[in-house]
Computed example of a mutant assay.
Amino acid sequence: MSAITPIDIPFDKRHTCWFCGEPCDRYFEYHSQVHTPHPSLAVPACGECLTLAKQPTFRT
């Protein structure tokens, strides 16, 4: 599996959590599965939102 490259992020938002808007220094990485049309990606996320985003997934 290749490394995930963060999406093209506007310069003024590169250190801002995309979930809550707080300053951040981490990335939430979404790894696409075999049966999903979405590509793998990484977006900036703070520690609190990253913890919530990594909770068990639901099948919808």
Rank of each mutant, 00 (worst) to 15 (best):
F11Q: 14
D12V: 08
D12S: 11
D12A: 11
K13P: 02
R14V: 06
R14K: 15
R14Q: 15
R14E: 13
R14M: 10
H15K: 13
H15W: 05
H15M: 10
T16D: 03
T16Q: 05
C17R: 02
C17V: 08
C17P: 03
F19C: 01
F19V: 05
C20H: 02
C20S: 01
C24N: 03
C24L: 01
C24S: 04
C24W: 00
D25V: 05
D25I: 06
R26G: 06
Y27T: 02
F28R: 03
F28D: 05
F28M: 05
E29R: 15
E29P: 00
E29Y: 13
E29H: 15
Y30T: 03
Y30S: 03
H31G: 04
H31R: 14
H31K: 15
H31W: 12
H31A: 09
S32M: 07
S32L: 04
S32R: 11
S32C: 09
S32G: 09
Q33D: 04
Q33R: 15
V34L: 14
V34I: 13
V34K: 13
V34T: 12
V34R: 12
H35E: 13
T36D: 10
T36P: 01
H38Y: 15
H38V: 14
P39F: 04
P39I: 03
P39Q: 04
S40H: 03
S40A: 04
L41I: 08
L41S: 10
A42D: 04
A42Q: 02
A42S: 10
A42C: 04
